[in-house]
Nucleic acid binder design. Structure first.
Lengths: 110, 110
DNA sequence: CGATTATATATAATATTCCTATACATAAGG
DNA sequence: CCTTATGTATAGGAATATTATATATAATCG
């Protein structure tokens, strides 16, 4: 797993990315991030929930309570229009960071 | 410039990277990072100095007071053996983070 | 000749974002 | 019955960046 100090700031991008393909609830968001990154990126739920609340406050996502097939209540989040618009510049900024670190020879060019 | 939330955690890698090619003092480290990344990555000196003290405490760098040609006192830092050994795994971890974000389609594959 | 910019280091107060620990509640499997 | 999985939620703390401030000197510009 990638150390906490290094992955700092990635949660926002990760959440927006996994929500792009459809609505998910918090617990499932955590699993998707872990699975899709093959375990490299992993967030505790204690980190994820406050992040989701912040993002909802910013109007990038919107949560709705629903009931699962077995009767569990859970909060399902979907990207808002503002959230979709936020993704592109966020990705650009991350790409720029990677380019900057490559220029410092901080990471490989592969 | 890349926003603070995103670049969080890069300072350590950036400092080690610019020190790899030779000893530098704090003020110059800040300039090198900014110049080499074409302004993408920029740290305030108030962030850099405590970072240098931490890294010296960890024995990754060692500082020595010297006097510049015009008589200014400044603290010159160079990588220690431990600091050089730290760079490789740190770079691997950052590469792994980039790969993880690409798998989430959070950034371009370019 | 005075003001600003550049050089150089240092600390205090604050913000953000992650962590561990804890709490609650239910279902499924061994 | 006990553990693991499913779900959401908050408290307390750690790490790393920010702005603001302080000190001190040299160079440059109007």
């Amino acid at each position: 797993m990638i150390a906490s100090g290094i992955k700092r700031g990635t949660a926002e991008l990760a959440v927006l990315s996994v929500l792009e393909s459809g609505a998910l609830h918090g617990y499932e968001i955590a699993r998707r991030i872990e699975r899709q990154t093959k375990g490299s990126l992993r967030f505790t739920l204690a980190a994820l929930y406050p992040m989701l609340y912040r993002m909802e406050k910013h109007r990038w996502i919107r949560g709705e309570w629903e009931t699962s097939p077995i009767g569990r209540r859970r909060r399902c989040y979907r990207l808002t229009h503002a959230g979709k618009k936020k993704l592109a510049p966020l990705r650009r900024e991350w790409s720029e960071l990677f380019a900057a670190l490559r220029r410092l020879e901080g990471v490989s060019n592969a």
